[in-house]
Amino acid sequence: AEDTGVRVELNEEDDGKKSSIALKLWVEDPKKLKGKYKDTGAIEFTFDLVNEIPEVVAQEMVESGFFLDCDVKIVGKSIRDRVALIKWRRERTVSPGN
């Protein structure tokens, strides 16, 4: 995935079944953000892989004061990339015959 300067990682082991999964997001490179970034640390949250939209969560982070509105796209893309990877891994690990 593209290096957005915002890192999103799994915050729990993925059992491949749960739709809601714990993620952790933090800024690795503040220079890649458009707005001034206040170093708050890592943000832990849960994300529903089936029913939620990464950009909506990014917007909630903006409204909660973690990021400025001008960075909502970069945060949303970072979450989207990680979610896509998790879904791709799940598809690959579906046991044959299922």
């Binding site: 990682e9 933090w26 690795e28 490179d29 890592a42 832990e44 949250f45």
Partner: peptide, 27 residues
């Protein structure tokens, strides 16, 4: 502990914690 909780009006809970040092990008 350095953790803090922020609950968004939509009901989502964000927990702020320190970034693991090993995961910080090398400068």
């Amino acid at each position: 502990s350095a953790t803090a909780q922020v609950v968004h009006s939509a009901g989502r809970r964000f927990i702020v914690s320190p970034v693991p040092e090993a995961r910080l990008k090398e400068q």
